[in-house]
Amino acid sequence: MEPGSRAVLDRCLSTGTTAMLVHADAEAIALVQRCEERGLAVPGDLSVVAYDDEVAGLFSPALTAVRPPRRSIGRAAVRLVADRLADPDRPAHRVVISPALRVRGSSAPPR
Rank of each mutant, 00 (worst) to 15 (best):
R71C: 12
A92R: 05
A77K: 00
P68M: 15
S106R: 13
A28Q: 04
H23M: 10
Y51G: 11
S72K: 15
T17G: 12
L85V: 02
L101P: 08
L9Q: 09
V49M: 15
T64D: 03
I97C: 09
R75E: 03
V95K: 02
R90I: 00
P110M: 06
L80C: 02
G57L: 10
A24F: 14
L21F: 14
S106A: 14
D25L: 10
A41N: 13
G44H: 04
L21H: 14
A19F: 11
R6P: 06
R90N: 05
G16D: 01
A24W: 14
A28H: 10
S98C: 08
L101I: 11
P43Y: 03
M20L: 15
V81P: 00
C12K: 07
R67K: 07
T64H: 03
A82M: 05
E27P: 11
D10E: 14
R11P: 03
I29K: 02
A62W: 06
V55G: 09
P43M: 08
T17V: 13
P99T: 02
S98F: 12
D87A: 04
R94M: 08
H23Y: 09
R38P: 01
A77L: 14
E36R: 13
V66K: 14
V32I: 12
D83W: 03
R84S: 05
A65S: 15
S107G: 09
D25E: 14
P110F: 01
A56Y: 04
V78F: 09
G105D: 14
V32S: 05
I29H: 01
P43V: 10
D83M: 03
G4K: 15
S106L: 10
R79Y: 05
T64A: 07
V81I: 07
L101Q: 11
A92H: 05
V22C: 12
S72W: 10
P68D: 04
A62I: 00
R67S: 15
G4D: 02
D89T: 07
V78A: 07
P88G: 04
V8F: 09
R104C: 07
R102P: 04
A77F: 11
V42I: 00
G39W: 10
H93V: 06
C35R: 09
R11C: 06
D52R: 07
S60V: 12
R34D: 08
R94N: 03
P99A: 09
V42T: 13
I73P: 00
F59P: 08
A76G: 02
P61E: 00
